[in-house]
């Protein structure tokens, strides 16, 4: 399998990346880990004419503490996140999530920024990003801005990023009581259903991936939460549930409730 021809540039700074994005418009794609993009290009389902490799931008692969927040650089690999002491101690739910992604080799190369920008409806991070109320820091030709998790995912492979923007970091609040629960698709190992829950006092925030074309906050569950897991029955209230040969609508809806229940009980 060979991708269609393209040009490649490895940029050294965010501004350089933005300039290239601006110059090439929708013919360009950002290359982060490449683990979603390159297979799609090989199958010629995606055929960008310019790849902008951002892996060399310094400072984008660090994980740091900023008061009550943990800032994860967009170029952090899933394995860096999974093994980070800071993440494991202050934001354990994110380490749990990262450990569920792909396999060793994929985790060594795939990045959180790349995964979020790709917005595969069965990817894992969105559930956790949503449940944590994380903020996505992006930069484009008109400067920096921060997008709330709930505003970021717009649909299947669609995000709030404009054509000239890239993700630079994700800012998480520290989370004491959070967990991620995934039901694996048996072939791809993506999430049929992935549920992240963050508990704070009497309330809970629940993010769900895999169930709908757009990952969502299960507000119906959150509203009905009474400290028990009974609110799980609201997991797919008002949700347009996806269907495929591994999980039809009925089964996927059921799984969503099961996984939300697990998350609420954790």
């Amino acid at each position: 399998m060979i991708p269609a021809k393209f040009d490649y540039i490895k940029v050294g700074s965010v501004s350089e990346a933005i300039n290239m994005l601006e110059k090439h418009g929708d013919e360009a794609k950002i290359l982060a880990g490449g683990h979603s993009l390159i297979p799609a290009m090989k199958l010629r389902l995606s055929r960008p004419e310019m790849l902008i490799d951002i892996s060399g931008i310094s400072g984008m692969d660090t994980i740091s503490e900023d008061d009550d927040e943990i800032v994860v650089g967009a170029n952090c690999t899933h394995s860096a996140i999974a093994s980070s002491e800071l993440v494991n101690s202050q934001l354990n739910i994110l380490a749990q999530t990262a450990k569920c992604i792909g396999d060793i080799q994929v985790r060594n190369r795939g990045t959180i920024g790349g995964s979020l920008a790709h917005a595969d409806p069965a990817s894992d991070y969105p559930a956790t990003i949503l449940a944590c109320d994380a903020k996505i820091e992006v930069e484009g030709k008109s400067g920096k801005r921060t997008i709330d998790a709930t505003d970021f995912f717009l649909g299947i492979f669609t995000t709030a990023l404009t054509e000239d923007e890239l993700i630079t970091a994700i800012r998480f609040p520290k989370v004491v009581n959070g967990s991620y629960h995934k039901f694996f698709q048996s072939a791809s190992r993506f999430a049929v259903v992935g549920v992240a829950a963050v508990k704070e006092g009497d309330s809970v925030k629940v993010g769900v991936t895999g169930v709908s074309g757009t990952p969502y906050r299960a507000t119906a569950v959150e509203n009905a939460y009474d400290g028990t897991s009974s609110a799980a029955s609201h997991a797919v209230d008002d949700v347009d549930v996806m269907s495929d040969h591994f999980a039809g609508e009925e089964y996927r809806s059921h799984l969503a409730k099961v996984m939300v229940k697990k998350a609420l009980e954790a």
């Binding site: 490649y8 290359l31 683990h35 297979p39 090989k42 199958l43 080799q105 994929v106 060594n108 190369r109």
Partner: peptide
């Protein structure tokens, strides 16, 4: 397409699938 792992090598010490790296 990074599904089977037969192409695994290490890059800077970490296992990676050489079919999905340019």
């Amino acid at each position: 397409t990074s599904g089977c792992g037969a192409c695994t090598v290490t890059v800077d010490g970490a296992a990676a699938k050489a079919c999905t790296l340019l």
